[in-house]
């Protein structure tokens, strides 16, 4: 892993992109890293485009600006590709991950000529299969961990089980479904 990895999340209000960024900060923290996880708030309403950010570093992080040249971009909502330049500043050596049921070949032309790696994942299908409802953030989280390699699979799964146990203390019945969504997403992102 590089000394610092910077990740930008694009989603819509209510989809959990901010929560996913905070969860990623959480698990990376558990592996001993310095982390930042923060949202950029625009108009506060369901469905509005939102951006969230992660920095994961071996050293203390002092910078407090948004991320303009990320190593990775995660697109939680495919419809954003029409209106938001999601690959703006994205490093060529990096990658973008898009939540879509389409093939990679159909997505690449929508990415403004981005030359780096492109990954797709059908987070909706995974979420419906694992949880019975559409919550894209868990699958997208597993996808970015796999693609970025910020930690290995076993560590990630162990830490996430702990995080979910804490987060869903009042409804433990959803923990297994979320763990299944993570496993499926880890395998299926391509």
């Amino acid at each position: 892993m590089k000394n610092i990895v910077e990740i930008r999340w694009h989603g819509r209000g209510g989809q959990g992109a901010k929560t996913a960024a905070l969860l990623l900060a959480d698990v990376a923290f558990q592996t001993g890293k310095y982390v930042q996880g923060f949202p950029e708030y625009g108009p506060e309403r369901m469905g509005a485009p939102i951006t969230a950010y992660n920095r994961i570093s071996e050293n203390d992080i002092r910078v407090h600006s948004n991320i303009y040249e990320p190593d990775y971009v995660v697109v939680v909502d495919e419809s954003l590709l029409e209106t938001v330049d999601v690959t703006a500043g994205l490093k060529k050596e990096g990658a973008v991950i898009v939540n879509t049921e389409k093939n990679k070949e159909d997505i690449i032309p929508l990415l403004g000529g981005y030359e780096g790696r492109v990954y797709v994942i059908d987070a909706r299908a995974i979420s419906i299969a694992a949880l019975g409802r559409y919550f894209p953030n868990s699958p997208m989280l597993a996808a970015i961990v796999n693609v970025s390699g910020v930690m290995d699979r076993e560590t990630f799964m162990n830490e996430m089980r702990g995080s979910y146990a804490h987060k869903f203390a009042s409804k433990p019945e959803v923990i297994e479904g979320n763990m299944k969504a993570l496993e499926m997403a880890f395998d299926q992102v391509h």
Partner: peptide, 12 residues
């Protein structure tokens, strides 16, 4: 403290 910049950013 600075609204959102530190108030809503998770950090060590």
């Amino acid at each position: 403290q600075d609204g959102f910049i530190t108030s809503h950013a998770v950090q060590n």
